[in-house]
């Protein structure tokens, strides 16, 4: 065998962010950063939704408040839209990176796969199913918007009456089930994701590494519990 003169692709130089995004590591950065934004949203969203426990007025006001964000400085719903765009962008990047990496990794795997069951020592179920938990979340979001934001999937949807809408949906068992499954998937996703992102953006330190694991676990548990409780409480009649 003869080693041939190698050519490295580092010669091409476009705007550094694009250049970075072309690389796998770059896309990991993108996933991590967008992941952080998404995590932020999830938490914010959960906290906001907690208002249902305070009764219809509060949560509906909260919805209004969101639209009024920026008070009289910015036209109504503008700031909210800006935030939405940020959110949409984060999702878009996150998802594009996720799929492109997933496909590349499929291509680069062995022609023949191992005949024996692999004995994974640390790779968790969560880490190996990121793409699937992601897809579930994605489908969920589509349904979720149709359900509670636009109301298509929600027969007796009343624009603006978040409380009413929620109760209507969740009191239908199948819908509740969808929410529960989706949020468990999201929990798994975060369980690996919230740890993994530190690795991707190079925040690591022997002293701090264990802490990363705890952070991710706590985060995942909070989100799952918090979100899953809504449908359950509705079914249980606590919220009605």
């Amino acid at each position: 065998m003869t080693a041939t003169k190698n050519t490295t692709s580092s010669s091409r130089r476009s705007f550094w962010l694009l250049d970075l995004y072309r690389s796998q590591i770059g896309r990991k950065w993108a996933m991590a950063i967008s992941g952080v934004i998404l995590l932020g949203f999830i938490i914010f969203h959960l906290v906001g939704n907690l208002k249902v426990y305070l009764g219809p007025e509060d949560i509906n006001e909260y919805g209004e408040a969101l639209r009024d964000l920026g008070g009289h400085l910015a036209p109504r719903t503008h700031l909210l839209w800006i935030m939405r765009f940020g959110l949409i962008a984060a999702f878009a990047i996150h998802i594009h990176a996720a799929f492109s990496l997933a496909f590349e990794n499929r291509r680069k795997g062995g022609d023949v796969s191992y005949q024996t069951q692999r004995e994974y020592l640390v790779a968790s179920y969560a880490s190996r199913t990121m793409i699937w938990s992601g897809i579930i979340v994605l489908l969920f979001i589509a349904y979720h918007l149709a359900d509670l934001t636009w109301g298509w999937a929600n027969p007796d949807f009343v624009r603006g009456d978040i409380y009413h809408n929620m109760v209507e949906s969740f009191s239908r068992a199948p819908v509740a089930a969808i929410y529960i499954v989706a949020n468990v998937a999201l929990g798994l996703h975060i369980y690996h994701g919230a740890w993994s992102l530190f690795q991707s953006i190079g925040i690591n330190n022997p002293r701090f590494n264990q802490w990363r694991k705890w952070f991710a676990q706590a985060f995942a548990v909070t989100i799952v519990l918090g979100n899953v409780l809504f449908p359950i409480m509705v079914l249980a009649g606590v919220i009605e």
């Binding site: 190698n6 640390v122 990121m130």
Partner: peptide, 19 residues
Amino acid sequence: EAMVDTMEEFFGSCTNHGE
């Protein structure tokens, strides 16, 4: 830069499995 770009021509990407 040179090493990673070359690596990525051959191998998959790291998703932090830790195996």
